[in-house]
């Protein structure tokens, strides 16, 4: 079935530089620097990326960072916990706005 998201498009990511090579170069250099070993390990950074990929719901990122997490030595239990962390933050972000709802409701109510 035809779909907007195609797995074979992921390796073509660098083609985005064809129309704006300088910007793409800066972006990919920055991207590589971000994921290099620093105060956080490459494994930890891949787990963060995997979690965020679920929040932004990017199928390419989920594919890429599931593989990256496994290749950096993470296991499925750790990856699942990482997804729960962003799920908690995402759910919490909705829920905490309930305070705003309560404030408005209280102001309007007798």
């Amino acid at each position: 079935m035809e779909t907007y998201y195609k797995p074979e498009d992921l390796p073509k990511f660098e083609e985005i530089g064809k129309e704006a090579p300088e910007l793409a170069k800066k972006f990919f250099e920055y991207y590589a620097a971000v994921f290099a070993e620093g105060e956080l390990t490459e494994r930890e950074k891949a787990l963060i990326a995997l979690a965020v990929a679920h929040t932004v719901q990017c199928p390419y990122c989920i594919d890429a960072y599931t593989q990256a997490c496994l290749e950096k030595g993470s296991n499925l239990a750790e990856m699942t916990e990482a997804v729960h962390v962003v799920t908690a933050i995402r759910g919490g972000a909705s829920l905490v706005h309930g305070i705003q709802m309560r404030n408005i409701a209280q102001k309007l109510s007798m």
Binding site: Q67, E71, K72, G73
Partner: peptide
């Protein structure tokens, strides 16, 4: 050895862990 169809992590980091 990796437990699937993927490559192993960098040796030094994995050994530390």
């Amino acid at each position: 050895n990796p437990t699937g169809a993927y490559l192993p992590p960098a040796q030094e980091q994995a050994e530390k862990r």
